[in-house]
Every structure is written in structure tokens, then in C-alpha cells.
Amino acid sequence: MGKIALILALVIVAAATLFLQPEHAGLAIHPMDQFEISPLFGHGDISWYTPTNVTAWMAIAVLCIILLLVVGTRRRAIIPTRTQSIAESAYGFVYKMVEDVAGKDAVGFFPYIMTLFMFIVFANFLGLLPFSFTTTSHIAVTAILAMLVFLTVTIVGFVKNGTAFLGLFWVSSAPLALRPVLAIIELISYFVRPVSHSIRLAGNVMAGHAVIKVFAGFAGALGMFAFLPIFAITAVYALEVLVAFIQAYVFTILTCVYLKDALHPSH
């Protein structure tokens, strides 16, 4: 089965290379065009409520999540079906992560963290479909996600610990002379968190998609030898599948780490 699919793919690639030559072979690389936001209907301006491709792909992500987690588990079977099994392992994966990393008292935040994880995972994987739009490649989206985490962590930290939360910045295990310096560094790193948190996700996703597009541009330019960049695209795509999951995992686990800081600020 796999062999047949591989041979078929190679034949298609060869045929495409032979018959679908670009009209004027040239390096026409637009790696960023895929991230453009356009209204779904018409060509007007984009105001805050206009349904755009962002809306469409976010809706598809929501639909997929509902299909997996709600429809997939509708039978509540003791011996799970395949879909239910996936839903349960996603649940167990995130739940265990929250419990292990953030602590048992962070279980109350589990639905919130699960929301983040499921959204990022589905947005990343849907973005890997050809002709799709990757919502998580936009810094606006990931910045909001990261800011939500940042605000949650800060507010929870102050609500749960009061001013003791500031102990997070006062490294009591360090020598006394070093502590003010460390406090400044910790403070800066605390405020850089949402920046790195958001740019890591958006940057990774964007970089992979852009690289694929760059290679696609090479393929268009190379004519007969297009199979070389196409193999490269395949390899990068495999890496991207991995990255799509790992970035969602990293985003979630960092959320848990920050949450642990908020719940237990002592160093």
C-alpha cells in the first residue's frame, strides 16, 4: 500500500515536472504570500468583525476539536473506539503534564491549558494541509495566547501569594550581594516571557512554511530537476509535522512551568 502510494506520487511528480512547466521559468518566490489575510467574501477592507480566512480556519479547528473530543467520545465506551482513544490520550497527556509540571493544585487550570493545547495543535496541523492557512503563524494570534498566559500567571500569582509572589524575583539561594542584580535579570526575563513564548510558536511555524515555499519556488525554477527541491520539501514537511506537535507541547508545558511559578513562587 505504502509502496504503491510512493510510486504513484513519484509518477505524479514526474508528470507534473514534464507537463506543468511554468510559463516563464524564473525564481518567483513569494514565501510570505501564504500568510496573507483576505476576506472570505469580496475584497473590501478588513474590519474587526469581517469573516476572513483566519475565521474560516479557526472555525475548522474548532470543528475538528469538537469532532474529536465531543463526537468521538459520544458513546462513552468502556472499551474505547479509535477516536475516543485518541481523545482520551490527549486528555491524559495534558492532564499528566499539568499535574506533573504545575503541581496538583493547578488542576483547576486544566480546562484552560487543554484549550490552549488543542487549539495550537489543531491550528498547526491544519496549517500543514496544502492551500490551508496557518492561524498560529501570525504573531497577533500567538501574542494574544501568550499574553493571556502571562496575565493569568501574574494575576494568579498575586491573588494566591500576595506580595510573596515578588519572592520569585528575589533569589534567596544566591549570595546577598548578587541578589539585586539577579532580581533585575529575573524581572527582565519575566517580562520577556510572553515575547519569547509567542514568537517561538509563530516563528517556528512561519519559518517552516516559508522554507517550504522557498523550496517550492526553486522547484518552479528548476524545470526538469524539480524533483530535488520536491524531495527537500518532503523532508522539511516531515520536520514540520514534528515541529507542529512539539511547538504545541512546548507552549503548553511552558504555560505549566509559568503556572507553577505563580502557585509556588519560592525559589
Binding site: I199, G203, V250, L254
Partner: peptide, 23 residues
């Protein structure tokens, strides 16, 4: 393994910053 991924993520974030600067 969780620590591994956190470490990798931190190391990679800085590379992503430079990629962003390039972009």
C-alpha cells in the same frame, strides 16, 4: 523529557529571534 523539551525550546527561541530579525 519535559525538561529536555523546555531546554530545547529556550535554545531554539533565540534562533527564532534571529530568524525573525532576518525576516
Amino acid at each position: 523529557t519535559a525538561t529536555l523539551f523546555i531546554g530545547i525550546a529556550f535554545a531554539e527561541a533565540l534562533g527564532i529571534f534571529s530568524f525573525l530579525v532576518a525576516l
